[in-house]
């Protein structure tokens, strides 16, 4: 394929190979890439988030650069990461008491109740998660259902960036998912193994393999 096309990345016009991703095109550029890059195509790290506008279109959409194939005339702008001003800290052991789940959620993420239903988070999500519905369920107290919606979230923070009320929806989702595991996950096989080991059973003979490989 000798045909090349042009795209603009952060204001710089670059030649691109058809079929390449935006991220691959950026890597062929003159500057060392030191941010907004991670898993290089697997689509799980959320680092390469960017705004994309196709030639002749007015709408700008948020995408992962590693999963988006270049098109001639595309305009791309990478989105940096910022630490938000107000983060409500919590620790895993704060989540142990499931009876406090609702007041704790309200305390940790008070903005959750302020959703304007603008749908910005839904449009921003590169995974197609119904983010707004998740926040609505959470603020109604339907926590397991809300948590389940965020199952495939890659924590790219695009919904957080999109939210005019600073709700940080992906962090709410993760909080709910974590609370679920912390409160409910007590696998019997794990409990048994931990108990056996606490009694000093099941120690390992590190020389057994030598005898076997000789025999």
């Amino acid at each position: 394929m000798s045909e090349t096309i042009c795209i603009s990345i952060d204001g710089k016009v670059m030649a691109a190979q058809p079929g390449d991703s935006i991220l691959q095109t950026r890597l062929h550029g003159p500057d060392a890439v030191t941010a907004n890059i991670g898993c290089m195509g697997q689509g799980v790290c959320g680092s390469c988030r960017c705004l994309v506008r196709k030639a002749g279109e007015r709408e700008t959409v948020s995408r992962l650069a590693c999963e988006t194939v270049v098109e001639d005339g595309m305009q791309v702008s990478f989105i940096d990461y910022y630490q938000p001003d107000h983060v409500h800290r919590y620790r895993p052991h704060d989540l142990r008491d499931g009876w406090q789940a609702l007041p704790q959620l309200q305390q940790t993420f008070p903005e959750t109740a302020h959703c304007r239903h603008c749908g910005g988070c839904d449009r921003a999500c590169p995974r197609g998660i119904p983010v707004q519905q998740g926040i609505a369920l959470a603020s109604r107290g339907e926590l397991p259902a809300a948590a389940a919606l965020f199952d495939a979230c890659i924590m790219c923070n695009l919904c957080t960036l999109a939210c005019p009320e600073n709700i940080r929806p992906n962090h709410v989702g993760l909080y709910l998912r974590r609370a679920q595991a912390i409160q409910n996950l007590r696998p019997g096989d794990l409990l048994r193994r931990l108990d056996q080991q606490a009694r000093g059973q099941l120690s390992i003979d590190t020389t057994a393999h030598l005898a076997r490989s000789e025999s």
Partner: peptide, 23 residues
């Protein structure tokens, strides 16, 4: 595995109905 669960990580269960679940 216990530490990960204490931090809030999920694992797949094979049988969620018995014995607090078996992984």
């Amino acid at each position: 595995i216990r530490w990960l669960i204490e931090l809030g990580m999920h694992f797949d269960l094979s049988d969620a109905s018995s014995d607090g679940g078996k992984l």
